[in-house]
Design a protein around this nucleic acid. Structure first.
Lengths: 199, 199
DNA sequence: GTCTATATATCGATAGAC
DNA sequence: GTCTATCGATATATAGAC
């Protein structure tokens, strides 16, 4: 109760902790692999007592709520990070910096991205929330009409996947090395073939 | 029984069908989301009777066996497809053809790749089987020392991921269009910077 | 090789005492 | 808001008849 008498509707702290813990469990073990008891245990409630149901109506309820919360939080954080990024001159330096930022963002979005792909058939809601929150322009960085940037974005996503998998041929290549090669390969054709995007 | 009296150890047909059905279920629903009854039902056995256990000792048993079988089968098929591919002159034509072949392979490996990533913490055996079966050289195509091919491989993997996700900015771009752009962007620096791979 | 029947544990979810 | 107690359904797995 505030001094003015006006009530600030504070969110239930237990509910908040459930949202965080549940999303982490869903990402780590999948939805089917996570039980309500697991969630209760993770937030310090007695497992198997159903205390969870005082905060959410079902497993799907907490799944969607925690996912939505996680996506919105990430979008805000990445937007803030981009806004705080120091300005760099255009050209290859700027290109390399954008690649670093983008790769870091892909790494941060990876758990939620994976959850969408894995649970898509059972919970299409996740895909809807994810794509709506990110929007079409999220990965373009103002390079919209540059086909070399389209290739760079895809290459960063692929490099990220290979690294995550610890798969050949990228097992031992650092992000800095890959970005250097990527910028080198894709920055020598900036002045050509802009109308190549559509068949 | 053969005429010579020599016995050919024919694999149990039910066991074979379980291997195929189980792998498909694991890919579609995850391991935790697939029950033994689901597997029995999928091969025409009465669900919940435990007939499954006459063929495999546990869920993990059939998981590893079916995954190993699936990986080896895919490796053989892709090797045969590459061997049967018609020869194309070197240069951009050859590069485009290799990109098409590689993208098609990534699409075929996608379900098993995803299963490895998702279940890796609980079943690290899958990751071991997958990487051992593919080997370091699987994606290089004889372009080992060409950094532009390293970028192309990563870009194809990324394009595949974005397409799978129906995510921006690749939602409406066809594989043929992307490969055309990719070859165009990466084929103009073949004669330069071969020593750029290590930092 | 498939079935009936069952043991044991856990699942998601609810009712009600405190 | 958390607990005890419990429901009905389902999970993995086994024993034994056919």
């Amino acid at each position: 109760m505030t001094a003015s008498g006006a009530r600030v509707r504070a969110p239930s702290p237990t509910r908040e902790r459930i949202l965080d813990a549940a999303l982490e469990l869903f990402v780590d073990r999948g939805v089917a692999g996570t039980s309500i008891s697991d969630i209760e245990r993770a937030v310090g409630l007695a497992a198997g007592t159903g205390s969870f149901y005082r905060h959410f109506r079902s497993k799907e309820d907490v799944l969607v709520a925690s996912f939505e919360r996680g996506v919105l939080r990430l979008v805000e954080e990445t937007a803030a990070a981009r806004a705080a990024a120091t300005d760099v001159a255009n050209g290859t330096e700027r290109r390399a910096r954008d690649c670093e930022v983008l790769l870091a963002e892909m790494q941060r979005f990876q758990p939620l991205w994976q959850l969408v792909v894995v649970e898509r058939d059972r919970y299409p809601e996740l895909h809807r929330v994810f794509t709506e929150a990110l929007g079409v322009a999220h990965w373009t960085f103002g390079w919209d009409d540059d086909p070399t940037w389209g290739v760079a974005v895809a290459a960063l996503a692929g490099f990220h996947q290979f690294t995550l998998m610890e798969a050949a041929p990228y097992r031992d290549i650092t992000p800095a090395t890959f970005i250097a090669v990527l910028v080198d390969v894709t920055s020598r054709s900036d002045r050509r073939s802009r109308a190549r995007q559509q068949p």
